[in-house]
């Protein structure tokens, strides 16, 4: 360890302890239960916030620590969450009355359909698939896990196939039918109200033409089996221009939202931790 690293470590530890004591005393004054723990936790979140922000300067041991801590805790968190909500919440009440009693879950008795098919039987299937999936851990029978993967991939491929056929294909076609001509009421009316936000006839017509041609040229840009030359190439060029303008607009639109996220974090540091502003 270099001298600098030792100094930095000592500073961090001292600051941490100082903040802990200070926040604990504050909590005690406010009459909070477990004030020592509370002080520790608030200090933790402040230090972790700073540790992540330090990444902006460069990768450093404190960031690395926060990152590994976060990966471990979040992986464990989602694991338990999945166990309690899906296995205990959804599966066990369908499989065993005594187990659901043990986990304090209401047992779902299921029903006999047509007198020969018991609905709870279907919940053994995912268990079987799940066990097949876990066979991956064995080097000899690992290939069996493909059955489970095939089930998931097949089911969702079918689902997405039909879903996107409707939402991204059929329903988009008819929305490209826009009025391209205007109801002619004289030249004065046509050129009136030229502001972009108003609904003057000229502006509305040009906008509709841009939407219409923009969609067509955008689609032409995505043609793979024809060289983009000549008129086709020009259309494709216009298509990518429209795409780029859109990407720019969308980029600009997001900026403000991101800045407000940062303001939120800074508020936490200054108000909730340091108590400087209110």
């Amino acid at each position: 360890m270099s001298r600098l690293a030792i100094i930095v470590t000592i500073c961090v530890v001292v600051l941490f302890l100082g903040s802990w004591i200070f926040k604990a005393l504050q909590a005690q004054d406010a009459g909070v239960d477990h004030y020592l723990l509370r002080g520790f936790l608030v200090t933790c979140s402040a230090f972790l916030t700073l540790a992540i922000l330090s990444f902006l300067y460069k990768d450093n041991p404190i960031y690395k620590f926060a990152e590994h801590l976060y990966v471990g805790i979040s992986a464990g968190y989602w694991m338990s969450q999945g166990f309690w909500s899906t296995i205990v919440g959804n599966l066990i009440p369908r499989l065993s009355q005594s187990l659901s009693g043990f986990f304090k879950q209401p047992y779902n008795a299921g029903e006999w359909m047509g007198g020969f098919f018991y609905t709870n039987w279907v919940f053994y299937v995912p268990v079987i698939f799940g066990v097949l999936l876990l066979m991956r851990l064995s080097s000899k029978y690992g290939w069996i896990s493909r059955w489970a993967l095939a089930f998931i991939v097949g089911t969702t491929a079918g689902l997405q196939f039909i879903r996107y056929m409707r939402s991204d294909f059929i329903e988009q076609i008819s929305s490209t039918f826009v009025p391209l001509l205007v109801d002619w009421q004289g030249i004065g009316h046509f050129f009136s109200n030229l502001s972009l936000s108003a609904t003057g006839q000229l502006v509305a017509m040009v906008s509709n033409w841009i939407i219409f041609l923009g969609v067509l040229c955008g689609l032409i840009y995505f043609f793979f089996s024809k060289e983009h030359t000549g008129l086709f190439g020009k259309a494709s060029r216009f298509g990518i221009w429209i795409l780029m303008v859109t990407f720019g607009a969308s980029f600009g639109y997001t900026v403000m939202g991101r800045v407000s996220l940062l303001v939120g974090r800074i508020t936490f540091l200054f108000r909730d931790w340091l108590g400087i502003t209110s």
Binding site: Y164, D168, L196, S207, V215, G239, V245, T246
Partner: peptide
């Protein structure tokens, strides 16, 4: 105007393309 007009056109073109790509892949 940018958010309402070219944006609409480009998004629709992209969405149709994505739809076809997804459908073909599925």
């Amino acid at each position: 105007w940018l958010l309402n007009v070219p944006n609409l056109a480009a998004k629709r073109a992209i969405v149709i393309g994505i739809g076809l790509g997804m459908v073909a892949t599925a």
